[in-house]
């Protein structure tokens, strides 16, 4: 493979000597320049992505990352390509996680809420704890759009969920 030119596009700023912060990648400590995104910080540390990296522009949902900060009880979720590292950040990438995904024939299903009950009865177990909204890396009001579906207001649900990038990728019956 050709020699790596580190001034190439993405990697450029990582070479300049900068203030370092400590991050913990799946428990292991690395010193990385601050102001890098998680993705670039992990590459700086020597990781090469196979999974967990996609468009690098915040739209494909491949790089969902869970992280915690010292002294903070919250669990945060962000996109690795969009979230800037912070000192002491503990992070791990979202593993493959199969969502319950219905198959359907768009021509054959109607627009009544019962079509949704049939496909996703679990919606009706929602307790409005709002954890979904809190973890959404796209700032989508998940709880509200789930509510809208239950109320049969699909237009509102579509609008509210429009920016979803499907970071928990709903796989189903996939070979390979």
């Amino acid at each position: 493979m050709s020699t790596t030119d580190t001034t190439k596009g993405e990697s450029k700023e990582t070479t300049s000597g900068k203030e370092l912060v400590s991050i913990f990648v799946m428990g292991k400590k690395y010193e990385v320049p601050k102001n890098l995104t998680i993705m670039k910080a992990m590459e700086y540390a020597g990781y090469k992505y196979i999974r967990g990296c996609g468009c690098r522009g915040g739209i494909c949902g491949a790089c969902g990352t869970v992280y915690r900060k010292p002294g903070d009880y919250h669990i945060y979720v962000g996109l690795a390509c969009q979230t800037v590292v912070e000192d002491g950040m503990y992070l791990t990438q979202l593993p493959f996680f199969p969502a319950n995904r219905a198959t359907y024939n768009l021509e054959a299903i109607g627009s009544d809420p019962e079509e949704v009950y049939k496909k996703y009865p679990e919606l009706f177990r929602c307790v409005a704890c709002n954890a979904c909204t809190k973890v959404c890396p796209m700032d989508i009001s998940v709880m509200d759009y789930i509510s809208a579906i239950k109320q049969g207001d699909f237009e509102k649900a579509t609008e509210l969920s429009f920016d979803c990038i499907q970071c928990i990728f709903p796989f189903e019956n996939y070979g390979g």
Binding site: C126, V127, A128, D144, S147
Partner: peptide, 25 residues
């Protein structure tokens, strides 16, 4: 604006506060 499902039944278990979140919201 922004109302959500109330949960339809009130939670009767004394240690269950989770199901109160919806109506309180």
């Amino acid at each position: 604006p922004r109302w959500n499902c109330c949960g339809a039944v009130f939670s009767l278990a004394d240690d269950d506060l989770l199901h109160l979140l919806a109506p309180v919201r």
